[in-house]
């Protein structure tokens, strides 16, 4: 029963601590990523030519460079220009920016799918551009983008496990420390895998509820 004792006294408290750190990474990153994604998506469709070019470049960079490399740049690279971020802040920044780039793709696609006629109708009523985007287009586009954005949040939960690479010790980081001390790799990483599975499952359920709540006639996803 020495195993059980080990799990109770060492594994459980360490993983619980890591789990909280993971949650603290995921929740703000998901929120900031979504906000960035909506803003960038709007700019990529309705911005001036220069703004569009900047936004497109942002997406190309942050989708094109591996996330670990991005994290290294934020954490190890920025000090060269005298900017020092804590591991936690660097991780949240990296996750938000990367996630925002992906969200913006879904938002952009959804914005482009809104029929032009509705914009003509809004304009003919005297709407200005900003009001038209916020009252007519975004409420529809967000409904259409939700499945894609939800998927991106599930991804974020999993790639939050990269934070330990820049010494932000979250769930995976704690697991790694425990495992290298005890050599019980299999047991510990099975537990950790289960933890992520719980997080992603809970997130799917929440996202599913959100989709149902926002559902309107005419916006159903036709499941065959």
């Amino acid at each position: 029963m020495e195993e059980w004792l080990y799990i109770q006294t060492e594994v459980y408290p360490a993983l619980l601590k890591g789990f909280w750190v993971s949650l603290q990474l995921i929740v703000p990153s998901a929120f900031c990523g979504l906000v960035i994604g909506i803003m960038v998506g709007v700019l990529r469709v309705y911005g001036s030519r220069a703004v569009m070019a900047v936004a497109d470049t942002y997406v190309a960079l942050f989708r094109g460079i591996p996330l670990v490399v991005q994290l290294f740049i934020w954490y190890f690279g920025l000090p060269y220009i005298k900017i020092y971020l804590s591991p936690f802040v660097a991780a949240v920044l990296g996750f938000s920016l990367c996630s925002g780039a992906y969200h913006s793709e879904y938002v952009r696609g959804a914005l482009l799918s809104i029929k032009r006629g509705q914009m003509l109708a809004a304009q003919s009523l005297g709407f200005n551009k900003v009001r038209m985007i916020f009252s007519i287009i975004l409420p529809q586009a967000i409904r259409r983008a939700l499945p894609g954005c939800g998927n991106e949040i599930i991804y974020l939960i999993k790639y939050s496990s990269l934070a330990y690479m820049i010494t932000c010790i979250e769930l995976t980081g704690q697991g790694k420390i425990l495992a290298s001390n005890s050599f019980k790799y299999t047991e510990i990483f099975l537990i950790i895998g289960a933890c992520y599975l719980v997080m992603t499952s809970v997130a799917s359920v929440i996202l599913g509820h959100l989709e149902d709540r926002l559902l309107l006639p005419g916006f159903e996803h036709h499941r065959i």
Binding site: K115, G117, A122, I136, G218, F219
Partner: peptide, 27 residues
């Protein structure tokens, strides 16, 4: 200057009442 279109162009996310109301409220 009111405009009526061939293919109606109602706002899909709003019900009939909201479609009629939104211009008065937002504009």
């Amino acid at each position: 200057v009111g405009m009526i279109f061939q293919d109606f162009n109602l706002f899909d996310h709003l019900n009939a009442l909201e479609n009629v109301r939104i211009g008065m409220v937002k504009v």
